[in-house]
Design a protein around this nucleic acid. Sequence first.
DNA 1: GGGCCATTTGCAATTTTGTTTCGTCCGCGC
DNA 2: GCGCGGACGAAACAAAATTGCAAATGGCCC
Lengths: 154, 154
Amino acid sequence: MKLDDFDRKILAILQKDNLTPQRTIGEAINLSAPAVQRRIAKMTEAGIIRANVAVLDPAALGNPITLFVEVEVISETAAQIEEAKREFARTPEIQQCYYVTGDADFVLVILVPHMAAYEALTRRLFFGNNNVKRFRTLVAMDRIKTGLEVPLGA
Amino acid sequence: MKLDDFDRKILAILQKDNLTPQRTIGEAINLSAPAVQRRIAKMTEAGIIRANVAVLDPAALGNPITLFVEVEVISETAAQIEEAKREFARTPEIQQCYYVTGDADFVLVILVPHMAAYEALTRRLFFGNNNVKRFRTLVAMDRIKTGLEVPLGA
DNA sequence: GGGCCATTTGCAATTTTGTTTCGTCCGCGC
DNA sequence: GCGCGGACGAAACAAAATTGCAAATGGCCC
């Protein structure tokens, strides 16, 4: 599916605030509300819009600590990697998980209420998994920019 | 502000799909639509709900490459750290930025169309900044779990 | 124990928003 | 030049959000 300038402008607005009325979007880009609505529907259908979500404040919800963890595994067979992916994906404290090249195999973004919770998590996920060779933790002191915004060209 | 069970259930729904009608939410948790609406308004007011956004597919929008970068700076004076934060925050390719303790000072999540774009970015952000001591890049091969979901207790 | 205040609820009315319909226009290929 | 497909806007329509209001609930002081 190919996008024109209208589509990109709509997406730019929606990824900042998807509760913006379609009528308002239309006014901003010189299009009628139904036209906006049809374009949104099409992009949602095409999977360009993956989800519509509320972004919550982790600290206000009892998870003030953000951690980064690089995990290196011992055996990188397809089966073991798949198993690791599944395990990470189903752990709620793991907010984000990527499989990477380089010195590490996985990068995780983790949210916890306190360090004791992280300690318990490491015991379960890393020490309790004999395919984990090594992991390295970085503790976030400041969340300067969080979000899922995608750069939308010019 | 303190939250009860209703609030947490509402948030759980909204952070998965904030386009869910309030009436539907109400039915799911046994509350009327106006009650749901008032709770959402209050939580938004309190900053617990930080934003409402559409999540877009980076690959579909021409940014198929996700990178992690750890940046170590030379001088960690308050002024220089603040300047670095501002610079990272205003760079659109930097989707996420955290100030961390440990071996590195910053962790960045970056989206680019291709490696040449990243190369140009490193030149501008890191080589072009004489307070950057070192940076280490990890390339994402698979985005297993992306999102901003916060674990919501029981 | 009784009464009072604050809070929150549900219902119903109102307003706003999203969605569908329909006729028109534009660009393209035949 | 003619017909076709796609996208548009205006208007009608449906659905959702929002507001006003009265009633229920719960704590607290007397």
